[in-house]
Simulated assay, not measured.
Amino acid sequence: MSILIRVIVNAVALWAAVFLVEGIRVTTDDTVTTVLVYLAVGAIFGLVNAVIKPIVKTVGCLFYVLTLGLVGLVVNALLLLLTDWFAGLLGLPFEIDGFWAAFWGAIIVAVVSWLLSLFVGGDDDE
């Protein structure tokens, strides 16, 4: 159940990024397909964050310390671009127009995910 909640939170956060950032798009014809695309991209984003982010944090630990965590914004943007690439491989109509769109989108996704996790109790420590 926790994984399903996490995918839904990611999907809503990605919807907010698509809504607020001009360079991020989901191009579908109907509402059901749009919801399914957001859920699929939310699952991909969750997998990318679960598998790759801990590796990057471990390897780049010194950069996190030296930049007081600001390199995390760049890492999150690159992970969102990687999600875009995986979505393209799977034929999902999710597109990001470059690093800066991914950068601002990653900030929005992080803030919205954090806010939603406060309400749904998406605590990863359980």
Score class of each variant (00 low, 15 high):
Leu4Arg: 06
Leu4Ala: 14
Ile5Leu: 13
Ile5Glu: 01
Ile5Thr: 09
Ile8Thr: 15
Val9Cys: 09
Val12Arg: 01
Trp15Glu: 15
Leu20Asp: 04
Ile24Pro: 00
Thr27Glu: 08
Thr27Phe: 01
Thr28Phe: 06
Thr31Asn: 07
Val32Ile: 12
Val35Ile: 14
Val35Asn: 12
Val35Gln: 07
Val35Arg: 06
Leu36Asn: 07
Val37Cys: 08
Gly42Pro: 02
Phe45Gln: 14
Gly46Ser: 11
Ala50Tyr: 12
Ile52Glu: 08
Ile52Trp: 04
Lys53Trp: 05
Ile55Pro: 01
Val56Tyr: 03
Val56Gln: 03
Gly60Tyr: 05
Leu62Ala: 13
Leu66Ala: 15
Leu68Phe: 15
Leu70Ala: 15
Val71Lys: 02
Leu73Asp: 03
Leu73Trp: 05
Asn76Pro: 04
Ala77Leu: 05
Leu78Trp: 02
Leu79Val: 13
Leu79Asp: 05
Leu81Arg: 12
Leu82Val: 13
Phe86Cys: 14
Phe86Ser: 13
Phe86Glu: 10
Leu90Met: 15
Gly91Met: 00
Pro93Val: 06
Phe94Pro: 01
Phe94His: 06
Glu95Ser: 12
Glu95Arg: 09
Trp100Leu: 15
Ala102Ser: 12
Ala102Cys: 09
Gly105Leu: 09
Ala106Phe: 00
Ile107Tyr: 00
Val109Asn: 01
Ala110Cys: 04
Val111Lys: 04
Val112Gln: 01
Ser113Arg: 04
Trp114Leu: 07
Leu116Asn: 08
Ser117Thr: 13
Phe119Asn: 03
Gly121Gln: 04
Gly121His: 09
Asp123Val: 13
Asp124His: 13
Asp124Pro: 15
Asp124Met: 07
Asp125Asn: 10
Glu126Cys: 00
